[in-house]
Amino acid sequence: MSVLELTDVHAGYGPYKALTGVTLSVQSGDAVALLGSNGVGKSTLVRVASGLVPTSQGQVCVLGRDIRGESVHALARRGVVHLPEGVGLFGDLSIEENLLLRLRRVPAPTRRRRLAEALEALGPLGSRRRTKARLLSGGQQRLVAVTGALAAQPTLLLADEPALGLSPAAADEVYAALERVRSTDTTLIIVETRLGRVENLCDRAVVLSSGRVAYDGPTSGAQDVLTGLIQRQPE
């Protein structure tokens, strides 16, 4: 089943166009790495998929339905979870409250169980459930955000540079958490600038270049394309 279907999508911010004709199809259970240099439109693509950025041309279908005119929250209720670039947590809310926000639409008994599971998955952090999120370190915050997103059991998880600004150890932890998704039927799209991080997790790689798809295929073939793109850049 097709989870995400983009057909000739153009999108951007004001006069600036970040995507210029992207066509992409993601099937259920895929784990896709979205690669490319800064400014090629990777973040814009996932924002289009979660409804945050409107398209100016082309069609976006999520779970077989066109998302034109659909609000961000309605799309989220259909199972699209977008972990935005940066922290992705409410700093003034506690760890527990941040997790609960993700579980709002789950019936009460299941919610309690999933909350307990999520807190357990957080390990030692789980025991500090009443701590405000802004008091945690960057790595801990990202871990809570990822755990919360997974607790929602999304159909499509869009993770925008989940390891940005993290120490190697913290980045590994975040990716280990994302690794757990592979055992469920969640479809995964991860934005990354470094291929090495996603080689094990993703079987498919999409490389963007100036708003278009430059490569779409197995992860193993992406390195050559990326190197080629960097070399072609004018110095």
């Binding site: 961000v72 929250h73 409410f90 809310l93 609960l100 926000l101 709002r104 929602a152």
Partner: peptide, 18 residues
């Protein structure tokens, strides 16, 4: 909970389905 979250970031709250 949504009320307190909305002050901080309405966009992020939208992403959680509210």
């Amino acid at each position: 909970l949504p009320m307190r979250a909305a002050v901080e970031s309405p966009k992020l709250l939208e992403l959680t389905g509210v």
